[in-house]
Design a binder for these strands. Sequence first.
DNA 1: TATTGTTATACTCTATAACTATA
DNA 2: TATAGTTATAGAGTATAACAATA
Lengths: 144, 144
Amino acid sequence: MTEEATDVLAGRLGYLLKHAQQRLVQAAAPAMAPFGIDGRELAVLTVVSAGAPISQQEAADQLRVDRTTMVSIVDALEVKGLLQRRRSAADRRKNIIELTATGLHCLRGAAVARDKVDRKFLAPLGDELARDFIRALQILARED
Amino acid sequence: MTEEATDVLAGRLGYLLKHAQQRLVQAAAPAMAPFGIDGRELAVLTVVSAGAPISQQEAADQLRVDRTTMVSIVDALEVKGLLQRRRSAADRRKNIIELTATGLHCLRGAAVARDKVDRKFLAPLGDELARDFIRALQILARED
DNA sequence: TATTGTTATACTCTATAACTATA
DNA sequence: TATAGTTATAGAGTATAACAATA
């Protein structure tokens, strides 16, 4: 690539954000592979384990994915034995989703692997710029 | 969303990066619409206008998209009359892609609109953090 | 009537394989 | 043999619409 063109692109926020995200996805995939899950599935395991029991819909809202997408993800996690559906006694329309023992074990391992990927990804920034970057992302990813 | 869950997610780099990118795409779409192009097409017009004449392949390399994807984008831009294909005299396998007068006009308008979107998107960060954010992205988006 | 989960469907983006013409 | 462009095709990822069960 010419330097001229690189400069043009370097100034484009959309290009930078898209490709930074793609690079992280590519770095994360091989780290997740040994655990048999991908980043999206790890995110679901994470929110399921975070606090009080939640339904598929609540998990979907938290991760900002469509509820039909959540059906697919939960299907996959249930097939792998990492997660269970259970009808809510309080509201029988809802599926409460819960980690299995295997799922908890998987989550713990995968979370460690993922943290390592994140740190390695951010390493070129140095500590201070990495902190600024995360802080900026937290502001920018927030719904208005 | 519970604060508990928000905290869990706030620490996840992948979640933040993905959703920040999605928010920018959503903000950019309506700004590009009056010009009849999307962000990906603007990127192609930008690299085509940047310096020396380039081929489809070179444009694809610079934008890190597949050459088959570039065919579709160039098709669309040519149909809209914003861009022209021309066989390279030096290497008749190559299509040199060039802006039309309409394409140049479109690029200028869309680039201004896009810059406005970018600035508005980054505004919540303040000047200093926004500069740090761009600097971090330039490091992270770089191929190793 | 509204909500939750589900299915079927479609659309976008992207990538792979195979073809052609050129080198 | 290798490269540039093209086409056909397929795979993610996501979203919309319609339905059943439940509130």
